[in-house]
């Protein structure tokens, strides 16, 4: 599970790891396609790439949050590092590292994200977005990534039938990130 520690200068750092049973280059390549990341990252609405820069749009209550990021290191199959551009952003920097897993277990993925917990109205919004805390959110996103890499789909119960429903914390979050699942519906229940 993710580890969340306070660093100097008001920055916190979350680190976590997951093993994905696919070759290192394949896992790297899927992640490096930044515009495809919203499929896995529940609250990320879109990522657009222009050269070394990327523009991130994240769903938040009361409107989207946006920022630019810049890739600072990119070693194919091994590591991607980035940092945010400008001051107002929550996510400051990040690193995703890919290493060979022993015993044919595929690829070990190590993620580190430095973030600045915001205060004020924005902070409340971010806290809502990251409901369970950034550590659990990153773990959830990586679990979704692993599901897609290993099975070709992201398991979901979103949209299933139920009795007198009530939404709750155990229900999967209904975000735009789930839309690709919805698109793959071919409809037609039993007649």
């Amino acid at each position: 599970m993710a580890h969340d520690v306070q660093e100097s200068g008001g920055v916190r750092v979350v680190s976590t790891a997951i093993t994905i049973q696919r070759p290192q280059r394949e896992v790297y390549a899927q992640w490096r396609n930044l515009s495809g990341l919203p499929r896995f990252l529940q609250h990320v609405k879109s990522v657009s790439e222009e050269g070394e820069r990327s523009h991130w749009v994240v769903d938040a209550p009361g409107g989207a949050m946006e920022w630019d990021a810049e890739i600072t290191a990119d070693v194919p199959g091994q590591v991607i590092r980035w940092k945010s551009v400008g001051d107002a952003t929550v996510v400051q920097r990040g690193e995703i590292r890919f290493t060979h897993a022993r015993q044919g277990r595929g690829t070990e993925v190590y993620v580190t994200v430095g973030y600045r917990p915001p205060g004020g109205r924005l902070g409340v919004g971010v806290a809502k977005v990251m409901g369970k805390g950034p550590g659990i959110q990153i773990d959830t996103d990586l679990h979704r990534f692993k599901q897609f890499m290993e099975t070709g789909e992201i398991a979901t119960t979103h949209g299933q039938t139920r009795g007198t429903a009530q939404q709750d914390e155990w229900q999967e979050e209904q975000t735009t990130a789930d839309e690709p699942d919805a698109e793959s519906r071919n409809g037609g229940g039993p007649s």
Binding site: A155, Q160, R162, S184, R185, G187, G188
Partner: peptide, 10 residues
């Protein structure tokens, strides 16, 4: 309740 539907292709 509503009948269940295919959600994922599998």
């Amino acid at each position: 309740v509503p009948d269940p539907e295919i959600i994922l292709p599998t």
